Computed example of a mutant assay.
Amino acid sequence: MDKGILITSIITLVSTLFINWRTSSFNNKLKKQTELFKDELEKQNLALKSELTNQEAIFKNELDKKKKIAEIYYEERAKVLQELYTLLVNGPSDIVNLIRFLGKTARKEEWANSEPYLVLYEEVKLNEDLLKKVLLKSSLYLKNEDYITIKKFHDKWGEPVKVIVDLFVLFEKVPDKGSIMFTLSNEFKEFSHQTLEVKKLNVMFETCVKLSNDFDEIANIIKRAIASEEIQ
């Protein structure tokens, strides 16, 4: 065999072996790097999944808290506004009935049994104090303009309530209630005079009856507030 050809063949063989070795070495390194990359990627994926799970749990917990707070808010709002509605709707009719009783009694028209009206009077005083507290609490659940409207409506009843209280103070001093001597005392004369002449209760009675007709607007405000999904 030609010496030159032999050398060429040897060089080719060596080159091929070297190339194959380099290729195999590169493939092995590439495989190791790929495996390392896959492991790192898997670790990152696991860490990300864990973080997402934690965040999801935190979000769900916060959402549950907000839902619970909202439920408590809506429940308390409904309770307060329903109580406000009841006090506002009953108050005017009670006040009108007391004014009618005071006027008729002062004119000696009826005094057969004053006890129910004395009980009603005590209830009106208690409800008026309660109404002030409930109205203030309702400001937490009403729009500012709605609260002002309701408060103005309530304030209009302030003077009639004050007059009723003043007159009942005089009426309670009258002796012999329910007897034939009822109208003969000086205490009754003072009560009658203050009721019919000074306070002009008939005018106040007519005013209160008209004022009662304005309750529809107040009722609608309260009903809308109870039904609303908004949180003030």
Rank of each mutant, 00 (worst) to 15 (best):
I99A: 06
D176C: 12
N28R: 10
K66E: 08
K156V: 02
V163L: 01
K38Q: 12
V169P: 14
Y121W: 09
K133H: 13
T34G: 07
D214W: 01
W111I: 12
M181I: 15
E71A: 11
P92W: 08
A225N: 03
L136T: 12
L135W: 07
K32T: 15
I69H: 02
K189R: 13
F188Q: 01
T207D: 14
T16P: 05
F26L: 08
K133M: 12
D64P: 08
A78G: 07
E172P: 04
K143L: 09
D155A: 03
D64I: 11
I231P: 02
Q44I: 13
Q55M: 10
Q44R: 07
F18N: 11
Y121M: 02
Y121Q: 03
N97G: 10
E110C: 14
L36M: 14
F37I: 14
G158N: 04
I231M: 07
I99E: 01
I218Y: 04
K104G: 10
N127M: 05
S212M: 07
L36C: 15
K108P: 01
Y85E: 02
T105L: 03
L88P: 01
T195N: 02
Y73I: 03
Y74V: 07
L88K: 02
D155M: 05
K177R: 05
W21T: 11
F26N: 11
D39C: 15
L13Y: 06
L120K: 00
N28H: 05
I164H: 01
K162M: 12
K3T: 15
L63R: 04
G103P: 13
E217Y: 03
R77P: 05
A219N: 12
E62V: 06
A225D: 04
K32I: 11
E35D: 14
G158C: 14
F188I: 06
D155C: 06
H154R: 06
A78M: 05
E83Q: 06
N61P: 06
L81G: 00
I58D: 08
I69L: 03
F205Y: 15
D146W: 01
W111K: 07
I221S: 00
L102W: 13
R77H: 07
N97W: 13
E83Y: 07
A78T: 12
W21G: 08
E110G: 15
E190N: 11
A70W: 12
I99Y: 06
V80H: 01
L196W: 03
F153E: 00
L46S: 04
E187F: 03
T195P: 03
Y74N: 05
E75V: 13
K3W: 15
E71N: 14
S138A: 09
K3Q: 10
L6F: 13
I58F: 07
